[in-house]
């Protein structure tokens, strides 16, 4: 059990997907303007990550044993269809949530965090529950990074920043400082 909790904390804080592995940077740059959207995007990501982890486990154990060279292709196909199914399901059961998520939902397909999770999980040979905790931790970590970034950006809009630095350059440098702060957690050690 301690092992599982450790995987979760490690994926969430010590090896934060966005700030330490640079995964999922597109939404990090794109939807981190407002805290509310960032939070919603994070939730959608957690959901898809957990489902992906389950699918990756299934594929690894029952399909890819016989054809390991199909790994990348089968993962990406499964993720793409998964996102489509989730989209249809949300549209059916909760049209309001569907509207709130908008374009960010289909874009999850090309979010490298999702494919990255499936590949890391395979490389580290995680079992079913380990994978599950890894996915939840990674999702929480993404959400944390997104929300932190969004709140800093909301504040920095009121700050007196030189015109030259406005835009992506500022976001990058803020992200660098955030990442530097998260490196402090490396003292906790890391689960590999």
């Amino acid at each position: 059990m301690g092992d599982l909790v450790w995987i979760l904390i490690s994926a969430m804080i010590v090896n934060n997907f966005t700030l330490a592995y640079f995964l999922g940077l597109c939404p990090f740059m794109g939807v981190s303007g407002r805290v509310e959207t960032a939070l919603r995007m994070g939730m959608a990501n957690i959901f898809v990550l957990v489902l992906t982890s389950l699918c990756a486990w299934f594929l690894n154990n029952f399909v890819l044993e016989y054809a390991p060279y199909l790994r990348v292709i089968s993962f990406i196909v499964v993720i793409a269809s998964l996102v489509q199914i989730v989209e249809i399901a949300i549209k059916k059961f909760s049209p309001t949530l569907f509207q709130q998520l908008g374009i960010s939902l289909p874009l999850i397909t090309t979010n490298c965090a999702i494919l990255g999770l499936a590949i890391f999980q395979t490389n580290r040979e995680y079992g079913f529950f380990q994978g599950l905790f890894f996915a939840v931790g990674a999702g929480l970590g993404l959400t944390l990074a997104l929300v932190l970034m969004a709140s800093i950006r909301e504040d920095s809009e009121r700050a007196n920043v030189p015109n030259l630095a406005r835009g992506t350059a500022l976001v990058m440098i803020i992200a660098g400082s955030l990442s530097l702060a998260f490196m402090g957690f490396a003292g906790l050690g890391s689960a590999s």
Partner: peptide
């Protein structure tokens, strides 16, 4: 050492972008 760790990536890109914007302006 920080430059080859993750924060260095963000900072390097940030400063390259700053430099390019400055040049274009």
């Amino acid at each position: 050492v920080v430059m080859i760790l993750p924060p260095g990536g963000f900072l390097t890109l940030g400063f390259w972008l700053l430099g390019l914007t400055w040049y274009q302006e």
